[in-house]
Simulated assay, not measured.
Amino acid sequence: MKYILLLLVFIAAQPLLAQDAPAYEKTTKAFQENFNAQNIDGVFDLYATEMQEEMTKEGVARFIKGCHSQFGNLKTLTFIESAEGINSYTAAFDNINLVMELKLNTDGKIATIQFQEP
Rank of each mutant, 00 (worst) to 15 (best):
A23P: 00
P22M: 01
I86L: 05
L104T: 08
K57T: 04
L5E: 14
A61M: 08
P118H: 09
I86G: 04
M51T: 07
I64T: 03
A61R: 05
G72S: 01
K109P: 04
E84S: 12
S82N: 14
L74R: 00
I86D: 02
A61Q: 12
E101V: 10
N97Q: 10
E54Y: 09
E53Y: 10
G108N: 03
E81K: 12
L74E: 00
E33M: 09
A48P: 10
E25M: 08
L7S: 15
V99H: 00
A111T: 00
S88T: 12
Q70S: 13
A21S: 06
A21E: 11
P22R: 01
D20H: 08
P22G: 02
Q38V: 09
M1L: 11
L5I: 14
G66C: 11
T78H: 06
V9Q: 12
F71E: 03
N73Q: 13
T112H: 14
I11S: 11
T90I: 11
D107F: 12
Y24E: 11
G85N: 02
A111S: 12
S88W: 03
F71Q: 00
F63Q: 15
T28N: 03
Q14T: 15
Y24D: 08
L17M: 10
E53I: 02
L102G: 01
E58T: 07
T76W: 04
Y3A: 08
G72D: 01
F31C: 01
E117Y: 11
Q70C: 08
A48M: 06
D94G: 03
L5C: 10
N95H: 09
A13F: 13
L98R: 01
N34M: 10
K109M: 13
E25K: 09
E117Q: 09
E50R: 12
E50Q: 14
A61F: 06
N39E: 10
D107I: 05
A21K: 07
L77H: 03
M1V: 10
L46S: 09
Y3W: 12
L7Q: 11
M1P: 11
E50P: 03
F31R: 00
T28F: 06
L16S: 06
N36I: 02
Q14W: 15
G85R: 01
T27F: 07
N97I: 06
F35Q: 07
I113L: 13
T49Y: 09
E50Y: 15
C67V: 13
V9W: 13
R62V: 13
S82H: 04
V99P: 01
P22A: 05
Q32G: 03
A92V: 06
D41P: 01
L6D: 03
G108E: 07
D20R: 14
Q114V: 02
A23T: 08
Y47L: 15
I40A: 05
L16A: 14
K57V: 03
L98K: 00
M55T: 05
R62Q: 15
A30D: 05
D41K: 08
Q114N: 13
N95M: 03
I40Q: 01
L6H: 04
E84C: 05
C67Q: 12
T78Y: 04
N97R: 12
V99E: 11
V99K: 06
T28H: 05
T106P: 06
I86R: 03
E117P: 00
T49H: 08
M55F: 10
P118E: 14
N97C: 04
T90A: 10
H68Y: 09
F93Q: 00
L46K: 04
